[in-house]
Amino acid sequence: MTSMDLQDVSVQLNNKISSIKRSMQLKNMCSDPSLTKVLQKIGLELSSIRDTLDIFQMQILQQRTELKSLQDLRNAVLKNSQTAHHLLENIPIHLPKKAAETSTADSKDARVQEGPAKPEPDKNSTKNKHFVREMEYLLLEEFNNVPGYMKGRMTYDQINAVIKELNATVKAKYKILNQPMKSMSNPIRNQYHAFKEQETKETKGQYFFVEADIKDFTHLKVDKKFHVILNILRHCHRLREVRGSHLVRYVLL
């Protein structure tokens, strides 16, 4: 056995002897009346320390719960931020717009070109102020909910491009209908009367167009594909049909 082994054994024996001595001392203290109060005081302090440790443990558990809540909140904020950036980078080409005022600006331009005009009665001025309603563009969710057999190979952008042309048609048509008769040329006056003949009791106060308007005001082809889009727009509650006198009127909803 080496000297190092003997030294380790000696240290272990000395530690055990010291532990036995301390145990004997503590045992003797219990039988010593003068040290009883000291032991009681030590016991109370140990109990106080134990209570403090319990409080610390409860606070640690509470802080862990709050930390988890903060982490969940942070993850939610990051997710919302990523969603917002995705939406910002993928804004649809077509978005719903508010109805535009058409005749007020046009009347101002006409007065600038023609020079000072005579004041008109209040009735005429109220007629010139007219808002043309526009069809709202389809949302992607609406397009996805259209049955596959109905839309076929039609794309979301194609349908909204047609809606843009239909809005331009309605705007052009009702610009003529709201134009003063005195300022109309003969061709425009003929169009005006033709538009008035298309109106019925069901279309009173509504905005509508017919296939002839599409041909007059846009470059769209009124073909099978166009009628497929009209069916989709009816399905999505963008327009309805009013038939009569061998004419189909497409009324904006």
Rank of each mutant, 00 (worst) to 15 (best):
Q113V: 04
K129Q: 10
R50W: 13
R74E: 02
D109C: 03
L87M: 13
L67S: 12
K27D: 11
I20D: 02
N80V: 05
N128T: 09
I91S: 03
L39H: 01
S19A: 06
F56D: 07
A99F: 10
E136Y: 04
D32Y: 04
S103K: 15
M29G: 00
G43V: 05
S107E: 14
K127I: 04
V77M: 13
H86P: 00
R22D: 11
E89M: 14
R22Y: 09
S125A: 15
Q62H: 12
S81K: 12
L46F: 08
S125C: 08
D122E: 14
K79T: 09
N90A: 01
F131L: 14
M58D: 13
S81L: 09
L70D: 09
S81N: 07
C30K: 15
A100T: 08
D32W: 05
Q57N: 08
Q113P: 00
A99D: 15
N28Y: 02
L26N: 09
L138K: 01
M58G: 04
V38H: 03
E114S: 05
I49T: 07
Q40L: 07
K21E: 13
A100L: 07
Q40M: 09
S48D: 10
P121A: 14
Q25I: 08
I93K: 13
L88W: 09
Q82P: 00
R22V: 12
Q62F: 06
D109F: 10
E45R: 14
V77T: 07
D54A: 14
R111N: 09
S23T: 10
L61G: 07
N75P: 00
N75Y: 06
V38M: 02
M135N: 02
I49P: 00
V132Q: 05
I55E: 05
N128H: 10
K27Q: 05
L35F: 03
S23F: 09
R64V: 13
A100P: 00
I60Q: 12
M135L: 01
S23I: 06
E136H: 10
L61E: 13
P116A: 01
K37M: 05
L139E: 07
A99R: 06
M135R: 02
A99Y: 11
K68M: 08
A100W: 04
K118L: 09
M135C: 05
I42A: 06
K98D: 11
K79D: 06
K68W: 04
S125Q: 15
G43P: 00
L73A: 13
K79W: 04
R64K: 15
D106E: 15
F131R: 13
I42C: 01
T65Y: 05
N124C: 07
R50E: 13
L95C: 04
S34Q: 05
P92I: 02
D51W: 12
E120I: 14
A110N: 11
H85N: 15
H86R: 06
E89V: 04
E101W: 03
L139F: 13
A84E: 10
C30I: 11
E114N: 08
K98F: 05
H130P: 00
N90E: 02
L26P: 00
A76W: 14
P121R: 14
K118V: 13
I20T: 03
K97M: 08
P119E: 11
T52N: 13
I42H: 05
T104P: 02
Q40K: 10
S48Q: 12
I42T: 01
K68S: 11
P92E: 03
L138V: 06
N124M: 15
R133I: 08
